[in-house]
């Protein structure tokens, strides 16, 4: 459903809603996967991101997102210099992820302390984004909701336990998706929520014995 505020918006640093605002949102989501500003980030740019990214500030916008800046933050312009001060070591490479990948796609490998994550995401136009892969698991995260991503052993009743924690904390679920590479292997659970889950929700999920890790992703799009 198209909203008026999708059309009159977003408020953003130019010049391109797909190459700048969308790139910043992808950076924010990658940051969320490691829970803070990464110490190192490898950003592999595909397609138009690789070809015209520098002219559109895609590099600055991605790094700005990793630093936690939102698309309307004027610090995007100087994000590369700020990153040095914050101890974020970034590296850009041009790549072809696959022939089917969206023209504006990035693969981000980010490390923060003990956490390492590999995210593939695309900027679809008008600032909208889609994360399609996390640590090799296929996902579809738009950033229009608060999300919780969980890597867990594939055990019976896992969904029931997690959703119970959410309902106990009065969090409404918008979408829920579980994927796994094979039966009995690890399962990857993405839950998009209408309400922002607090740290206590994340910690309650992390305390489940079969959960390997759980992270909260901020809502990066929409009003």
């Amino acid at each position: 459903m198209v909203s008026l505020l999708d059309i009159i918006g977003p408020v953003m640093v130019g010049p391109s809603s797909s190459h700048t605002a969308g790139a910043c949102r992808l950076g924010l989501l990658a940051r969320g996967l490691v829970g803070g500003t990464p110490q190192t980030a490898l950003l592999e740019l595909h397609g138009s991101f690789a070809r015209t990214g520098e002219g559109h500030g895609t590099d600055k916008a991605l790094v700005a997102g990793l630093l936690g800046f939102r698309p309307d933050d004027e610090r995007i312009r100087t994000a590369l210099e700020i990153a040095e001060g914050e101890g974020l070591e970034y590296k850009f490479e041009k790549t072809t992820i696959s022939d089917e990948s969206h023209p504006n796609t990035v693969r981000a490998t980010v490390v923060c302390g003990p956490r390492r994550a590999v995210m593939v995401g695309s900027s679809l136009g008008a600032g909208r984004v889609l994360v399609t892969e996390i640590d090799g698991f296929p996902v579809d995260i738009t950033g229009s909701f608060y999300s919780i991503v969980i890597l867990a052993a594939d055990v019976k009743g896992s969904i029931a336990r997690v959703t119970r924690i959410l309902s106990d904390h009065d969090i409404n679920i918008a979408t829920l998706k579980l994927t796994r590479k094979q039966r009995g292997g690890d399962a990857f659970i993405v839950i998009e929520c209408d309400d922002s889950p607090g740290e206590e929700v994340r910690d309650a999920i992390r305390s489940l014995a079969w959960v390997r890790w759980a992270m909260r992703l901020d809502k990066v799009s929409g009003g």
Binding site: I8, V13, S17
Partner: peptide
Amino acid sequence: EVNSAMGVIVAAPTAGGAGVL
């Protein structure tokens, strides 16, 4: 011109057409 110089604008409907409205 502000948009091209990485200034803050409102995409309306997009950044490329942000000056008209």
